[in-house]
Design a binder for these strands. Structure first.
Length: 161
DNA sequence: TAGGCCATCTGGTCCT
DNA sequence: AGGACCAGATGGCCTA
């Protein structure tokens, strides 16, 4: 009788384990879907050309990093000059990013490598004045939080213009 | 066909 | 104990 109950117990444990695994898989799938949604939101605020293929995940993150840097630099320059025109049309031309710069921003793959190496192709993390436009990501932030934070940063900067 | 990208599964670790 | 997060493994799809 004890043997049978042991087998029954083992079967129950196996079933419980299987059930937990299925639930964990489901949560993991959900988590990745959320992460992808955050990446999509981030893509949506990045400037792209109509015929551009969808940016890959790593391209999206690199592009966002460069884009934030470009916007930060633009703000800094505008602040330095204190010549921001009031008319909307003028503001647009004032903040026009040179095409050479856009090419670089729009083609992250042109400077792509398998590793994140900010020294080679990402903007310097500190400008001439020692200001750091880097995104403040505290230790312990999840991937989702980081992507979403980048997204919010871009929205914030874009609202400036 | 090789290589890149992606989704999913899985086991481990940490936290509540 | 259960959930969140992460990294490694695997297989599918697509493109040069």
């Amino acid at each position: 009788k004890r043997g049978r109950s042991k087998v029954k117990c083992e079967g129950l444990v196996t079933k419980q384990k299987k059930n937990r695994r299925v639930k964990a898989n489901d949560r993991e799938r959900n988590r990745m879907h959320n992460l992808n949604s955050a990446l999509d939101a981030l893509r949506s605020v990045l400037p792209t050309f109509p015929d551009d293929a969808k940016l890959t995940k790593i391209e999206t993150l690199r592009f966002a990093h460069n884009y934030i840097w470009a916007l930060t630099e633009t703000l800094r320059m505008a602040d330095q000059c204190r010549l921001i025109p009031n008319h909307h049309e003028d503001r647009e031309s004032f903040f026009h990013i040179p095409s050479s710069c856009m090419m670089d921003l729009a083609s992250p793959t042109s400077v792509c490598s398998s590793e994140w190496d900010s020294s080679t192709y990402s903007p310097s993390s500190h400008d001439a004045d020692g200001h750091s436009p880097d995104i403040l990501v505290e230790e312990g932030f999840s991937c989702y939080s980081i992507v979403y934070t980048v997204y919010l940063y871009i929205i914030f900067y874009q609202s400036y213009f």
